[in-house]
Design a protein around this nucleic acid. Structure first.
Length: 279
DNA sequence: ACGGATGTTGCAAG
DNA sequence: TCTTGCAACATCCG
């Protein structure tokens, strides 16, 4: 689930719920989730104030007093959840932050793919993944010049290229398919064959679509209720993702699903023709 | 019943 | 150096 809009939704929710709270103690139920020996992790966090929650791409940056930052990535299914003391702990709860007001901030993750790195504030950019992360998909950060430059230098096909966080931060499988459909670009189009017009259209759509998804509190794909906060509503606005065999909302042609770089990829063969490439 | 797919990323192997 | 494929883990679907 969590691509940039979902992570941003979590960030806003966490800000409301735990900004200004103090960590009394921490339980580590699954040690592989963190970058330090559990005892060091727990000791370092005891008594720290949660000052602010930031985000960079799909990474949450939990700012703590004494110059500490937890870099948290939800990967596929990570969720934060605030529970009262004594609420039953499920088998997918891996880290529990006991807050001094009696509430608990719990990290839940069925697949255990999520990771938390506790680092000194200011060194978070050395965490793997943040070291090479590309610009945020905003008007200011994601410039036409930058896109033109990276697109001209690669012969990769566009879909996997968009999923590579070192090119642009924040797009995942769902929004990559959506922005390509919106931009009428074939997922298998090599990036160095895109016209300037296509690059500009793609840029606009990336920025607008992610903003729109944030406004809709993100996309909830699996139907089980999100433990945390509001369930997203944006799944109702998806045009191609998960719609294999359904008519394209623009032209009525059946949406096709193929596999590209091991990822399910949905597109309209009519609206998104492959241009100038022999196949 | 079991093989394959599922939203992500890091790293190994080529 | 760059690119590709898989592993990490659990569940669900057909």
């Amino acid at each position: 689930m969590p691509e940039l809009p979902e992570v941003e939704t979590v960030r806003r929710g966490l800000t409301q719920l735990v900004e200004g709270s103090t960590i009394q103690s921490v339980d580590v139920l699954y040690a592989k989730m963190i970058n330090l020996p559990p005892n060091d992790f727990k000791k370092a966090l005891r008594g720290k104030l949660i000052e602010k929650i930031d985000r960079r791409g799909k990474y949450l940056l939990i700012r703590l007093s004494d110059n500490l930052t937890i870099v948290s990535h939800l990967r596929m299914e990570g969720k934060y959840d605030v529970e009262p003391e004594g609420a039953p702990v499920g088998k997918y709860t891996h880290i529990i932050f006991h807050l001094t007001d009696g509430r608990q901030l719990r990290y839940n993750d069925t697949r255990k793919f999520g990771r938390m790195n506790l680092v000194d504030t200011g060194t978070e950019m050395q965490v793997a993944g943040l070291k090479t992360i590309g610009p945020e998909p905003t008007e200011e950060e994601l410039t036409v010049d930058y896109m033109q430059k990276i697109f001209s230098k690669s012969r990769k096909v566009i879909k996997p290229f968009l999923l590579d966080q070192s090119n642009i931060a924040g797009l995942g499988n769902i929004y990559a398919d959506e922005v390509l459909w919106l931009s009428k670009i074939n997922p298998q189009q090599p990036v160095n064959t895109l016209t300037l017009g296509q690059i500009k259209a793609l840029r606009k759509n990336i920025i607008a679509e992610l903003a729109k998804a944030i406004a809709g509190h993100g996309t909830t794909v699996h139907s089980y209720s999100t433990a945390y906060g509001e369930a997203g509503s944006f799944q109702n606005q998806l045009n191609v993702y998960g719609r294999e065999g359904e008519p394209c909302p623009r032209c009525g042609t059946k949406i096709v699903k193929i596999k590209l770089a091991q990822r399910g990829t949905h597109f309209c063969p009519q609206c998104q023709p492959l241009r100038g490439v022999k196949k």
